[in-house]
Simulated assay, not measured.
Amino acid sequence: MNSFSVSPRRLVASLVKNRRLMLDLARRDAVGRYKGSFLGIFWSLATPLFMLGIYTFVFSEVFKSRWGAAGTQTASKGKFAIVLFAGMIMFNLFSECVSRAPTLILSHSNFVKKIVFPLEILPCVALLSALFHFCVSALILLVAEWLIAGTVPPTAVLLPVILAPLCVFILGVSWILAATGVYLRDISQTIGILITALMFLSPIFFPVSSLPERFRVFAYLNPLTYPIEQGRDVLVWGQSVVWGHWVIYSLIATAVAWLGFAWFQKTRRGFADVV
């Protein structure tokens, strides 16, 4: 079998074969970022707690914001913070992976020289590390929701269903950026600007229903609109997955992942020459 095959079977085989290596590297990555700090891994808990407090104060006290259209607004300030935080953790999962993607190969240049090392797993390692922080944030969200609202919707168990196609989409984008970033170093400088723009264009601080009808079609072209809205539905509003939309998004995410993997495999031959 060609070691640089673009076949989906080749990808699945590599991920299954190297699953333990990915988990080990992801664990080291998640813990390593706090190495040497006084609080250590406790920062993974403290950071989302701090952000939840900031969101609650700024948007409920300073901006006096409420969620929804007139007559259907959330009355509780704490509830508004939960709604906001639910959208933010979905976006943060995407932004953490994508912002790191352009430098993944460059920051692991020692692996490029090793022909036997499966470079294609590096975006998966970054994703697993980001999922650890996502799970911590999601746990804090659910505890806060239970304390503020007195209950957690049973539909919250459907969150992994929403996450699955989002993770597939993230991998596709990460493979594209990781490979392109080797040859085009400027991409790592511009990706932060694009992510910031995408944050304000995504339905994190507003529901899509609040937009004028003529603008909603553009909102749904945003690849983060579906996972943010559906994640909020199952975590906060107690609504189930819209399966028709889920299937469409999953098919698109799968296509992006395959194209990203194909691009990565086609360009990886030159990594050693550039790095």
Rank of each mutant, 00 (worst) to 15 (best):
R268K: 13
V236Q: 14
I121S: 03
V275N: 01
F215S: 11
C97H: 01
K64G: 09
A46P: 00
P212I: 09
L52I: 03
L211W: 09
D233E: 15
K17F: 06
T196R: 14
R185C: 01
F261A: 03
W258P: 04
R10P: 01
Q230G: 08
G270E: 08
M22S: 09
Y183P: 08
E61Y: 14
R216W: 02
K114H: 10
D29A: 08
C135H: 08
V242L: 13
A13V: 10
Q265Y: 04
L235I: 12
R10N: 13
S99W: 01
V6E: 10
F215Y: 15
D29V: 02
K77R: 13
Q239I: 14
L93E: 02
S137K: 09
V136N: 07
V62I: 15
F215T: 07
I252Q: 06
G150P: 07
S107C: 03
L49R: 01
V6P: 12
P203V: 09
W263Y: 12
P154H: 12
K114I: 13
P212R: 15
V112N: 07
V31R: 13
K79R: 10
P48T: 05
L23D: 05
K64N: 13
R185Q: 08
C97R: 01
S99H: 04
K77A: 14
L224I: 11
L11T: 02
V173S: 06
P227C: 10
E61N: 14
F132V: 15
V152H: 08
A144K: 07
S109W: 07
K113T: 12
L84S: 01
I148H: 08
S60N: 11
T267E: 02
L93W: 03
N110A: 15
S129I: 02
G40F: 02
L163F: 10
R232N: 09
P118E: 03
S14R: 12
A75R: 11
A164F: 15
L23Q: 11
A101M: 03
V242C: 06
I228T: 11
L163P: 07
L39H: 00
L49G: 00
L39S: 00
